[in-house]
Computed example of a mutant assay.
Amino acid sequence: MSEFDKDDYLRDMPDADSLADKTGGESASPKSSAKADAPEGSEKSDASGTSADSDETRQAGQDKADASEGSDKEGLTDLGKAKQEAAGYLEALQRERAEFINFRNRTVKEQDRFRQHGIIDVLTALLPALDDIDRIRQHGDLDDSFQAVSAKIDKTFEKFGVEKFGEAGEDFDPTKHEAILHKPDAEAKKETVDTVVESGYRIGDRVIRAARVVVASPQGASA
């Protein structure tokens, strides 16, 4: 058996620095590898999560747009439908009101026309009697009582818009005077009414009967 040599044994043993370097390198490598792997995995996880969130957001926006488009296609909301229905009722009411106003205006015009026709019929029937009253008045043969009756008749016709016209001395107007005779007059410078044979009557602008008159014409004027 060989003798144990302490110096040779210690010489073959690795020194402490070599052991420390070897141990540190081995331990750092896994940690470094784990550290390097961790961010990569984390980045992958974060990227996956962000991508999922983005997809969900886009999907939610698309669903909202599709819902809005579908709502427009299908119709309004309950409130919108109620407003639309109310607007339709209002439009129909305004149309009915306009038609009623037109009908009322037409009715009023027709009533005025019928009323005027009635007055014209009565006036036309009374014209001979009115002419007789005028002739009696011109000759001054009316007594007080009969003159009062004549005044009441004139006022009654005035109340219904009947106007009597035709006065001696006024200019001759073919639109309201009917000349039954032209009398030359040396002093006349233009055609004027010399004598009113029958008074004229009109309602507004409508002449019921032209005044029948004798016209004084300048000498040399054609009759």
Rank of each mutant, 00 (worst) to 15 (best):
D7V: 09
G70Y: 09
Y9L: 11
Q138S: 12
K22Y: 15
L127E: 15
A186I: 11
P218G: 06
G166E: 06
Q219C: 02
G204N: 07
S48P: 00
A20E: 15
D63L: 03
Q84I: 02
G169W: 05
E163K: 06
G25N: 12
P174R: 04
L79F: 11
K109G: 01
D66L: 07
E198Q: 14
K183P: 00
A223M: 11
A36T: 13
F100Q: 06
G70A: 15
A16K: 06
S145C: 00
R209P: 02
A151R: 09
L10D: 09
E26D: 11
L93K: 10
A148L: 11
S32H: 05
D15C: 03
L181Q: 15
D134K: 01
A86D: 12
T57I: 15
A47H: 08
G49A: 13
F103M: 04
D8S: 10
A151C: 00
L142D: 14
E178F: 13
A223R: 15
G220W: 14
M1C: 04
H139K: 13
E191D: 12
V149C: 01
G25K: 10
D154H: 11
E40M: 05
E43S: 07
F103K: 07
D78L: 10
G200P: 05
Y89H: 10
I153T: 14
D37R: 04
N102C: 00
S145P: 00
E191R: 11
D121K: 12
D185A: 06
L142A: 13
K35V: 02
V162C: 09
F160T: 09
E40P: 00
K190V: 12
V149N: 07
M13V: 12
V122K: 01
K31E: 05
K73M: 01
S68Y: 08
K176A: 02
E85G: 03
D46Q: 08
H139D: 15
V162T: 11
R104E: 10
A151W: 01
A47D: 13
K152F: 04
G88C: 03
Q116H: 07
H139S: 12
R95L: 06
L181V: 09
E43K: 06
K73R: 09
E74M: 04
